[in-house]
Simulated assay, not measured.
Amino acid sequence: MASGSCACHYISYTASTAPTCLVNCHCTSCRKQAGAPYQTWAFFATDDIRWHVNPTERRSTNTSTRTFCPRCGSTLSMLKHSDLKSIAIAAGTLNEGKTRIPLPSHHIFLSEKASWFELSERDGAKRWDKWGVYDRL
């Protein structure tokens, strides 16, 4: 079982499984939300996540909805409208403990990568200019 929370711990969740994979998204929307060169997402089956307090939802694009904590503003998840069976949880919200958390396996939206960020070729992660892998998870 995996678990996590926002920064202020108002919103927490548990997952009945470990994440299936981690993906680093370099799209402009994720970079702006994270305030970083990319957002790392941990993927779970939507039915495997149980929110103890439901986060606030915001339709972030015409293809996805994101959630966040209304108290501290932490990004919590993203749901792609064309794939409601899979949910992306912000990997930074995961509690590290007994759950095996995999290394990121993919970089997506490299066509929107921050020009000032140097991406190492040594991480072994696959690379996609657009959605790519997300459609195959």
Rank of each mutant, 00 (worst) to 15 (best):
C6E: 04
A7M: 14
A7Y: 11
Y10S: 07
S12M: 05
T14R: 04
A15D: 13
T20I: 14
T20R: 15
C21G: 15
V23M: 08
V23Y: 04
V23K: 02
N24E: 03
C25K: 01
H26G: 10
C27S: 03
T28I: 14
K32P: 12
G35E: 07
A36G: 13
A36S: 15
P37R: 07
Y38Q: 08
T40V: 12
T40R: 09
W41Y: 09
F43A: 12
A45Y: 11
A45P: 13
T46V: 05
R50F: 04
W51V: 05
W51E: 04
H52I: 07
N54C: 01
T56C: 11
E57D: 12
E57W: 10
R58T: 09
R58Y: 15
R59H: 10
S60W: 02
N62Q: 03
N62P: 00
T63A: 08
T63L: 00
R66D: 11
R66C: 11
F68N: 05
C69H: 05
P70H: 02
G73P: 06
G73C: 06
S74C: 09
S74R: 05
T75Q: 10
L76I: 11
L79C: 11
H81P: 06
H81G: 02
S82N: 13
K85Q: 14
S86L: 12
I89R: 08
A90T: 14
A91T: 07
G92Q: 07
T93R: 06
L94I: 06
L94Y: 09
N95R: 05
R100E: 15
I101H: 03
I101K: 03
P102L: 13
L103A: 15
P104E: 01
H106K: 04
H106A: 13
H106I: 00
H106N: 03
H107Y: 06
H107L: 01
H107E: 04
H107R: 10
H107V: 00
K113Y: 02
K113D: 06
K113G: 07
A114V: 07
A114L: 13
W116L: 08
W116C: 11
F117R: 01
E118V: 10
E118M: 03
L119Y: 04
E121T: 09
E121C: 06
E121G: 12
R122C: 00
D123P: 02
D123T: 04
A125F: 02
A125S: 08
K126T: 05
R127G: 00
D129V: 03
K130D: 02
K130W: 00
W131K: 00
W131V: 00
W131T: 00
G132K: 00
V133H: 10
Y134T: 02
D135G: 05
